[in-house]
């Protein structure tokens, strides 16, 4: 397995796979963030949005992202867009829901205090409500990242597309156990790396500031 891992890295197959997958992940995840954060904020603060979209968002969250694949294939064919669509569908709703929860948990007193100091409109949202809900949003981002990663692998496994998922699939076809394991180890490694390097650090910083790191 170790040899297979080494070979995979040295002849570039795994590295290319990592590159392709990470690129998709970043694009899909970014779209989810760009859409999900404002959507979550809107759901928490607007009754109209909540009434019209709230149930849909919760319902979509219950749908495993891979169930979107048939739609994606019908709409976009065997394309990059189809995979991105699945990634976004997988992570968007968890980010939205966590953002909504984070914003709803902002102590009303903080908003009142900011209003008495003269904050209104965008100021109130960007300078008070958003930073105040940061702990909740951050856990949503973390969750979204994991979901995006899983959706991507599921999508890549199911059709020929390059990326790590496809390496797994071809490993299975060749009955090459060590290769399958090598790819799996790579996936675990990547997941751990982003968790430790990005999310752990961010959350640690927030906890230190807010003082929630001590019991």
């Amino acid at each position: 397995m170790a040899r297979s891992l080494w070979e995979g890295f040295s002849d570039g197959t795994i590295l290319v796979g990592v590159g392709v997958s990470l690129r998709r992940l970043f694009i899909g995840y970014s779209i989810s963030l760009i859409v999900g954060l404002p959507l979550g904020l809107g759901l928490a603060r607007s009754k109209v949005l909540e009434d019209s979209l709230g149930t849909i968002v919760t319902g979509m969250q219950a749908l495993p992202s891979i169930c979107w694949l048939p739609i994606a294939l019908i709409w976009f064919g065997l394309s990059e867009t189809a995979i991105l669509f699945v990634v976004v569908a997988g992570s968007l709703f968890s980010i939205t829901i966590a953002t909504t929860a984070g914003v709803r948990n902002v102590p009303p007193l903080l908003v009142r205090a900011a209003r008495t100091m003269g904050a209104r409109g965008p100021q109130l949202y960007f300078r008070v409500i958003l930073p105040a809900s940061l702990p909740g949003i951050l856990s949503g981002m973390r969750l979204g990242w994991t979901f995006a990663w899983r959706s991507l692998m599921a999508g890549e496994l199911l059709f020929v597309s390059g990326g790590l998922g496809q390496l797994l699939a071809t490993g299975r076809e060749l009955r090459d156990m060590s290769r399958v394991l090598a790819v799996m180890v790579t996936i675990v490694g990547l997941g751990l790396l982003t968790d430790v390097l990005v999310f752990d650090r961010l959350e640690q910083r927030v906890r230190e500031r807010w003082g929630t790191d001590r019991a």
Binding site: L109, L110, R115, V128, W210
Partner: peptide, 19 residues
């Protein structure tokens, strides 16, 4: 008609921003 910085308010809780 609205809150404004000419009238500061202090509450029972400090309402300071933890971030």
């Amino acid at each position: 008609t609205a809150p404004g910085p000419d009238r500061s308010v202090m509450f029972q809780d400090s309402a300071l921003f933890p971030w």
